[in-house]
Computed example of a mutant assay.
Amino acid sequence: MVDRTPLCFRCHAQLAVKRVHLLSDGFEARTFQCGLCDHHLVVVASSTDPLDSVENRLTSR
């Protein structure tokens, strides 16, 4: 899960979320776009909260 947007690899400006596309098995593809140089970045991330897993609930007691 992405808490903050990444920086542009070209000009180091903050990227903005352009699109979120749901994939199978709890993942999503997030497309980010730079407002300065128009560079695009696609990141595949988990769409579920890793801290809300069954394993974490069992071990965090």
Rank of each mutant, 00 (worst) to 15 (best):
Q14D: 08
Q14H: 13
Q14F: 04
L15I: 05
L15D: 02
L15M: 12
A16S: 04
A16Q: 05
A16Y: 06
A16L: 03
A16G: 08
V17M: 13
V17Q: 09
V17W: 03
V17A: 14
K18M: 05
K18Y: 11
K18G: 13
K18I: 07
R19I: 14
R19A: 05
R19L: 14
V20F: 01
V20D: 06
V20T: 10
H21G: 10
H21K: 10
H21Q: 09
H21V: 12
L22D: 15
L22H: 13
L23V: 09
L23W: 11
L23F: 05
S24F: 11
S24P: 04
S24E: 04
S24L: 08
D25M: 06
G26S: 06
F27V: 07
F27E: 14
F27C: 07
E28N: 04
E28T: 01
A29P: 07
R30L: 10
R30F: 02
R30G: 04
T31I: 12
F32I: 01
F32N: 01
F32Y: 02
F32M: 02
Q33L: 10
Q33P: 06
C34I: 09
C34F: 05
C34T: 11
C34W: 13
G35D: 02
G35F: 01
G35V: 01
L36R: 15
C37L: 00
C37S: 00
C37F: 00
D38R: 01
H39S: 03
H39F: 07
H39I: 00
H40I: 01
H40W: 04
H40F: 15
H40S: 10
H40D: 02
L41Q: 00
L41D: 00
L41V: 01
V42E: 15
V42Y: 14
V42S: 12
V43G: 14
V43Q: 13
V43R: 08
V44T: 02
A45F: 05
A45K: 05
A45V: 06
S46G: 13
S46Q: 13
S46W: 09
S46K: 15
S47Y: 05
S47A: 05
T48M: 09
T48R: 07
